[in-house]
Design a protein around this nucleic acid. Structure first.
Lengths: 296, 296
DNA sequence: ATTATTATTCGGTTTATCCGATATAGATAA
DNA sequence: TTATCTATATCGGATAAACCGAATAATAAT
């Protein structure tokens, strides 16, 4: 490995700024140093990355071809640098979770984790499934907890626990009295659900297969709390994960609606990079996950 | 960016071999040089990657934590190096395709491509969908052509053309005379199909939803030609992509079976890395793809 | 205790990196 | 055309890094 990350930095800065002087300035080095760094990179591989037309430097085809690869490489290098600089802390852990899991399951686990590692530096990143996958693939997260489906060559998906969506209504709603609500009745009401693209919505759409286009969806909201309040206010029936509703059912502010004819189950999963090293903190977290699975 | 790829090489070689001497030897450098490279890396970030117990170097937790990231980084660096060394060739193109597409569609396109770029250095890599995705994500391939479904944060999937599977039988088979074969009749015969995991099998399983567990699958083969020969020999009904069967139907060595009640369509897709630079060769290939789409 | 093995340290050489100054080339305006 | 501005390339020299070989120190095995 004869070339250096610095040389790539110079190459990319030059490609981005279009001029060597600006590139040099952005890297806090002299223009001459940048010039020779670029020359070294090019002569090492006996290629040209830029057309020299007079005083201008114009990136050529090979340069453009390599730019995204170099960009990706340097991005990883910066992440490794960060891991080196910050990763020394013991119990250091970065958890990613989707909205429902993050707000209802992960926070409790986080508190438990803090008991065992009082000085731990833990972060919880709430994002959608594909964004979590991306961060895991780049080692920006240690472990992810997702609801949706996912396939990624670098990631290992482990089924975690089963979840189910529950249809719910304000207390006293006629449907809450029924032992079984029919498809016909599902069609004859209005709905308040999560926005398309979210894992909860995916599961809802799947459960409603066949009658989905005929459902009257009056409101699509991004937050579970907002949906609950909208249903309380009588704007329609809601459908959310049981774990978001536990408290509201207990208090009686909302009531479940029985829909035995449809399958609202879904799988929650743990996602990690295949090559991930299981640090003490990560092992402790996975143990907490396993405990959650059995103990609910 | 103050650390170098060389330092990472020393770190990884030491982690792998467990001894600095062997690491140094594997990198064709002196023991002392390796020692100081490692020391430089550690002192730059003020961390320790190894426990020094007497004469032994034992990788510590932080080291193990960083090892896979460093490994991934260096892997990319080697690929970039290769691109730099070999990527200078004009018309250079690496195409990945799944078995059915690779053997029946891509070869013809490859021949056409060679006409336009007689000196082009083109490679066709036939592999399964997830392996192609992996190679695309690492910039080891320029473009992929797949049949299965795929979701990957770094990859861009573009629908290409529609394909359909066709149920077929040897000439004169009673089913070939029927205008519509029923589910009941599908159950009362034996089948010769592709192995589980292949895109063609996935599509077959999806098309047979509902009656799949009751089908009598007598043979699972990895090659389309083998399946065709097995069906010719009377071992059962086959089900393959229309593009594999065109020639056999024309010759009359096999005949299609009409199953209008089931949906055998599927989508073929073009896959590329989101950040991929479209070189002249790649643009020409994509143009060929677009031509194929309309002209069939 | 001796030997073999291994990491570290030290001196010295080669190589790389970087800066400042200077040379050069193209664009722009007088 | 000539002067000027701006940008890249190159040169000399200082500094730092990388590297080797040899010596040293530490440990495990004999």
């Amino acid at each position: 490995m004869r070339y250096t990350l610095r040389q790539l930095e110079v190459f990319l800065a030059t490609a981005r700024h279009g001029t060597l002087s600006q590139a040099a300035e952005s890297l806090a080095m002299s223009q001459s140093a940048a010039s020779s760094a670029l020359r070294d990179l090019e002569s090492q591989f006996e290629v040209l990355l830029f057309e020299r037309v007079g005083k201008r430097l114009k990136i050529n085809e090979l340069g453009q071809y390599l730019q995204p690869q170099a960009e990706a490489l340097l991005e990883r290098a910066r992440e490794l640098e960060e891991s080196l600089a910050l990763g020394g802390a013991p119990g250091h852990l970065r958890v990613g979770a989707t909205l429902t899991i993050g707000n209802y399951l992960a926070v409790g686990m986080l508190a438990r984790f803090r008991e065992d590692f009082p000085h731990a530096d833990v972060s919880l990143n709430v994002a959608n499934t594909s964004s979590i996958a991306e961060q895991l693939a780049r080692f920006e997260l240690d472990v992810g907890m997702i609801e949706g489906e996912l396939s990624h060559p670098d990631l290992e998906i482990t089924p975690w626990r089963e979840d189910e969506l529950v249809v719910f209504a304000p207390p006293g709603h006629p449907y809450t009295q029924l032992a079984a609500v029919s498809d016909e009745q599902l069609r004859n009401t209005t709905w308040v659900v999560r926005e398309p693209g979210s894992g909860t919505r995916q599961a809802f759409d799947r459960a409603m297969a066949g009658i989905l286009p005929e459902l009257d969806i009056s409101l699509e909201l991004q937050h579970t709390e907002a949906i609950k309040r909208a249903v309380e206010a009588g704007l329609g029936l809601g459908c959310l994960s049981r774990i978001c509703l536990h408290e509201a059912f207990r208090r009686g502010s909302l009531q479940p609606v029985a829909v035995p004819g449809r399958d609202f189950r879904r799988q929650l999963s743990i996602v990690m990079h295949r090559q991930k090293y299981r640090s003490a903190g990560l092992r402790a977290w996975l143990a907490l996950c396993a405990e959650q699975r059995s103990g609910s």
